[in-house]
């Protein structure tokens, strides 16, 4: 990527930082050279952050990834958002950390309808409970798998 394009990305990263500041989230947005931005927000603010980003133009939720980090005692959720009709804006991976012994977070299904399937997938494979999700149940694994078994947990 040329230096000019990098400059553009960083000015847009700055505007993402300012949008998040509006709802009281102080965070740093890093744009890598493949035009993907990475940011971390606290779990209490994830819903507000996603709501404001959707208003500003990140109107496509690509997916939600979950990573289990037992050494640090947390699980990391990554909300992959994509800009729609916004010139030069990077893809955004919005991270949040939730405690491993109480993996619960607010649902975002009322902002992105498609999150219904993605949240069910994370619940299925990692056991994260999404509060407020109607019909949170297994989606990929068979129904007769024991309730507390989540295969992508590391321990």
């Amino acid at each position: 990527m040329s230096s000019e394009q990098k400059q553009v990305s960083s000015s847009q990263a700055q505007s993402i930082v300012e949008w998040l500041k509006e709802i009281g989230v102080e965070t740093e947005v890093k744009v890598d050279k493949y035009n993907v931005a990475w940011a971390e927000v606290p779990m209490e603010k994830i819903k507000d952050s996603i709501r404001i980003l959707k208003e500003k133009g990140y109107r496509h939720l690509t997916t939600i990834s979950g990573v289990d980090l037992p050494d640090e005692g947390v699980m990391e959720l990554i909300y992959h958002l994509a800009p729609v009709k916004m010139d030069g804006y990077p893809l955004l991976c919005l991270k949040t950390r939730i405690p491993r012994d109480k993996p619960e977070i607010e649902t975002i299904t009322d902002i992105f309808t498609v999150a219904i399937v993605y949240e069910r997938e994370v619940y299925d494979l990692l056991g994260v409970k999404f509060i407020g999700h109607k019909g949170l149940s297994r989606i990929l694994l068979p129904r007769d798998v024991p309730e507390d078994y989540h295969p992508l947990r590391k321990k």
Partner: peptide
């Protein structure tokens, strides 16, 4: 450490 795949059919199922 972790690989995550999201296939298009999952996005289209709704």
């Amino acid at each position: 450490y972790r690989v995550k795949v999201r296939t298009p059919t999952l996005a289209n199922i709704l």
